[in-house]
Amino acid sequence: MLLKIDSINSYYGKSHILYDVSIKVDRGESVALLGRNGAGKTTTMNSIIGLVTPKSGSIQFDGKELVGLKPDQIVRQGISLVPDTRRIFPNLTVLENLKISERKSADSNWTISDIWELFPELLRLKASRGRELSGGEQQMLAVARSLVGNHKMLLLDEPFEGLAPIIVKRIAKTLIEIQKTGISLIIVEQNFRMALEIATRCYVMNLGRIAFDGPSSAITENPELQKKLLAV
């Protein structure tokens, strides 16, 4: 077991957002975290990475307790968030964005030249500033930035949001390749069809609780469940 979230309760100020959320992810596994807008998916990601501290419950990553650690300490355990807004540094070039994200570790060995092979479009843009990139290019760079940090697990918050279908396919294909290298993924999505093509297992959240967990096929093959849990 790489990540074991055990009944966490998280709050924004006084609002109780997450109720006893439990999630498990194995080494090298891809898991989708689905749910409608406001279901608590991003809060779950923020709780893992330390931007929100759960009031109760535990989050164990590779045998180490994460609750109470600061975001930078959590990231150094080998877990990286690709935020939904991408948060590319607008005043740095593509290459500089990657340079400051580089981190050596025993877990994997991604280098900037590997990124140029994975995303040739970024190589062409390497001297462009973050603010000059399109949404798709920013998303590629956001994923690339996490890769050169050489983490055990990537948390991808809405990686397909606002992207053209052809770019969505491109990113999805890359995520499958990344998973094959042994990196675990948690993909948070409203676009559940694409997420389920990548993930083997999924959790569905509703009103701050885990409403369903099971193999991805259980959702893709069951239109009624889709309607009940995911339809807007």
Partner: peptide, 24 residues
């Protein structure tokens, strides 16, 4: 330099700097 670039990055988005594992 990497330290200089981190300072530039931090002037725009400190939270993201910490999300790269850098102690702010």
């Amino acid at each position: 330099t990497k330290a200089g670039l981190i300072i530039k990055a931090g002037s725009r988005d400190l939270t993201m700097v910490s999300l790269l594992g850098i102690p702010v």
